[in-house]
């Protein structure tokens, strides 16, 4: 992230880390999660799922901060994120 000035407590702030998982066969390719991901983690895959839809995949998984917005905006219950702050260090 770009800052207009360095925050004084930057070294103490802990940013959560998340991991996005897609339930492939539920996705209908509406792109809501891709457009509304605030960190630009997701991108449309070139592959198809069993129903013939393109599905999202984590193009830049390291950027995910586990905000769960993809999870709440998905009309298909096909994407969710989990907290991995502890394991990522």
């Amino acid at each position: 992230m770009k800052y207009w000035r360095e925050p004084l407590d930057l070294d103490r702030i802990k940013v959560t880390r998340g991991r996005v998982t897609v339930v492939l066969d539920r996705c209908k390719g509406c792109e809501f999660c891709i457009s509304y991901c605030s960190r630009g983690v997701l991108a449309m895959s070139k592959k198809f799922n069993r129903k013939g839809y393109h599905y999202p995949e984590a193009a830049e998984p390291a950027k995910c901060v586990n905000c769960h917005f993809c999870e709440v905006i998905c009309p298909e219950f096909a994407i969710f994120s989990e907290d991995i702050s502890d394991t990522a260090g």
Partner: peptide, 15 residues
Amino acid sequence: MTPPTTAAVQPVHPQ
């Protein structure tokens, strides 16, 4: 065309 992908084990959504 890439063949359709299906995960062997379906991930469990929190809901």
